[in-house]
């Protein structure tokens, strides 16, 4: 869960504007694939699955049509799914929140409320921290130290959330799709 959910990210990108599979892959790579670009196969597999689930539909085939010549558009079902994804907080974990990052970018791209997304996530993080804090009460030192370890990691995420929240305007200006 912590890693980027590729197909939902692609669905999010598609909800910005209809796009060809080829272009979609490159947009994805631009934002999220700097270190690890997406394989074409993965893109088409995802597109096929989303079409099957009714989240997207391919516009009229053009001449010589292979899969890369199809233009896809998001459906209402797809939009709802993206929104649901964006505003469902991830479970705080100790790994980098790349999924949260993807959600933030998509939210900015589709002009949705990125602040709210971050707040929702902050609440989730704090809820988890509260749990851990409660767990510490009366626990033995070993347990306390383990809880503290988790707390510090979650706190690091929270700091990232706070910082990102403070930089949303700047970020919005930088990622405008060409």
């Amino acid at each position: 869960m912590a890693v980027v959910d590729n197909s939902l990210t692609l669905l999010g990108l598609l909800s910005v504007e209809p796009s060809y599979g080829y272009d979609l892959k490159h947009t994805y790579d631009r934002f999220f694939g700097v270190r690890k670009p997406l394989a074409f196969g993965q893109v088409y597999a995802s597109l096929a699955r989303m079409t099957r689930d009714g989240q997207i539909l391919s516009l009229a085939d053009e001449a010589g049509g292979g899969p890369d010549r199809k233009k896809y558009e998001v459906t209402e079902v797809g939009r709802t799914r993206v929104s649901q994804w964006m505003f469902t907080p991830d479970i705080p974990s100790e790994t980098l929140q790349s999924n949260l990052f993807a959600k933030t970018i998509i939210a900015l791209l589709v002009d949705d409320n990125a602040d709210r997304l971050l707040d929702v996530q902050r609440t989730e993080h704090l809820a988890r921290m509260r749990e851990l804090t409660r767990e510490k009460q009366g626990a033995d030192l070993m347990r306390v130290l383990l809880c503290d370890h988790a707390l510090f990691h979650i706190e690091a995420d929270l700091r990232w959330i706070d910082l990102t929240g403070a930089r949303l305007t700047q970020l919005r200006n930088e990622i405008k799709l060409p």
Binding site: L126, M129, R130, E155, R159
Partner: peptide, 15 residues
């Protein structure tokens, strides 16, 4: 400090 806030029943965020 989130770890301090974690002692609370809930947090409210002022922006």
């Amino acid at each position: 400090d989130p770890r301090t806030a974690a002692y609370a029943d809930r947090e409210i965020i002022v922006r």
